[in-house]
Each structure stands twice: as structure tokens, then as C-alpha cells.
Amino acid sequence: MESGRDRLIEAARSMLAAQPGRVPSTRELYEAAGVAAPTLYHHFGDKDGLLQAVTEAAFAEYLERKRAVPRSDDLLADFAAGWDMHVGFGTENPALYALMYGPADHRSPAARTAEAELRRGLERLADAGLLRMEVDEAVDLTTAMAVGCVMRLIHDGGSATVPLADTMRAALMSELTGRAQEPGSPEHTAALLLARLGSAPALFTSAEEALLRQWLRTLADRVTTTHDAPDKEE
């Protein structure tokens, strides 16, 4: 049986999604959850505590999807796939994204974890000699451009597949590394599809999605093996 705490979180998510930009009242929240006011106060202290719990849950969901994006031997392709996943999550969950990256963000543990994972990805680029600025600056730049891109797409009612998202990704990667990942490369195409599979779960059965993931990983592995193999002497 669903607990009062879970019902409050689900009610808050539903109400925020139904009316983006409007924060429901405390009474609206506990009535929508079908609980009494003391239940909300017991679990969260007040409405702000409930919204913070919703934000924490959203970051946890975001991190789960981010960690499901497979890595390849191409750091630039991996970074591009991470961007695509981030933009996709934001445009699919506009109300949650506004909580996660809006002024009400209180740097929850999950938010700090998300930033730490971004930093590790950028440190991998730096270690490979691909980053042309300090990691701290790269973290700030990447966050600013990603959040700005998603907020603009949400404002315009767009999706992660519109040209603006690709243009901003290329601009960011050019600024970070001096070159943009070639969007038509097999590595990037496979990583992109893998990153976006989780955003449309209704399209495939579990077996179909598992098979598609296997094919895409096989393609990426073969491309990497082909690129890394030394040329044979005639």
C-alpha cells in the first residue's frame, strides 16, 4: 500500500506537471494526496520540504537515466550523448526541471552528485588532453549552456530533437575542446539512440528494447575496433 509520504510526492509531481510555473498551495497538495495536513507536516515539515523531496526524487531519476547511457572509447561521443540525455530529460519533464535548476534549488545531495558526475566527465576530457580550459570553468560553462538550452526549449514548447539543441551542443563542445563531435559519425549516432531510448519506453516491448540496445552496442564496438586497428602493410 502506498504511504502518505509517497502519495504526497506523487500528488506534487502531478500538480506541477499539470500547471507548470504554478506552485500549488499546501492545502491543495494534501487534499490531492488524500491525506490530512498533519501527514504533510510530519513527513516534510512544510510545503517547501515537500517540494525539496520532489526535487531530490527528480535528480535521482535523472541520475538513473544518465548512468544508463553506455560509454564508448570515444570521449567526445560520450559527452555528446550525455548532453542529449540531459536535454531530453529536461524537455520531457519541464516542471521537474524547473525545480531542479530553478532559484528554489537548495543544492540537495542528489544535485551535488549530478554536478560531481559532470565534473568527472570533464576531468576525463582534461586527462585526455581534450579540454582547453580549467575544469571548474568547464563545469560552469556546461551547466549554464545546458540549462539555458533546456529552458529555451521548454519556453518554445520544443523537444530535444530540434536543431537548436544540436547547434548549442556543437557550440559548447567547440568552446570546451576546440572541435565539435561530428554528429553524423556512427559512434555518435549509436550513443545518441541509446541515450534517447529511455525517453520513449512505450515504443518497444522489453525484449525489443533489449535487442535494439544489443545491436547499437555491437555497432559502436565494431566501429571503435575498426578505428583503433592499425593499418596492415601491403
Results as ranks from 00 to 15, higher is better:
Leu29Glu: 12
Leu29Pro: 13
Tyr30Cys: 04
Tyr30Pro: 02
Tyr30Ser: 06
Tyr30Phe: 13
Glu31Gly: 11
Ala32Cys: 10
Ala33Arg: 09
Val35Gln: 13
Val35Asp: 10
Ala36Pro: 14
Ala37Asp: 14
Ala37Met: 15
Ala37Phe: 12
Ala37Ser: 13
Pro38Cys: 03
Pro38Leu: 07
Pro38Ile: 08
Thr39Pro: 07
Thr39Cys: 09
Thr39His: 10
Thr39Ala: 14
Thr39Val: 13
Leu40Phe: 04
Leu40His: 01
Tyr41Ala: 07
His42Ile: 07
His42Cys: 01
His43Asp: 02
His43Phe: 00
His43Cys: 00
Phe44Glu: 02
Gly45His: 00
Gly45Leu: 00
Gly45Asn: 00
Gly45Ile: 00
Asp46Lys: 01
Asp46Val: 04
Asp46Pro: 05
Asp46Trp: 03
Lys47Arg: 11
Lys47Ser: 05
Lys47Leu: 07
Asp48Arg: 04
Asp48Gly: 08
Gly49Ile: 09
Gly49Thr: 05
Leu50Asp: 07
Leu50Met: 04
Leu50Lys: 01
Gln52Tyr: 12
Gln52Lys: 12
Gln52Leu: 15
Gln52Arg: 15
Ala53Val: 01
Val54Ala: 10
Val54Phe: 10
Glu56Gln: 13
Ala57Cys: 12
Ala57Gly: 10
Ala57Val: 10
Ala58Glu: 11
Phe59Val: 09
Phe59Leu: 13
Ala60Trp: 09
Ala60Ser: 11
Ala60Asn: 06
Ala60Lys: 05
Ala60Ile: 01
Ala60Gly: 08
Ala60Tyr: 07
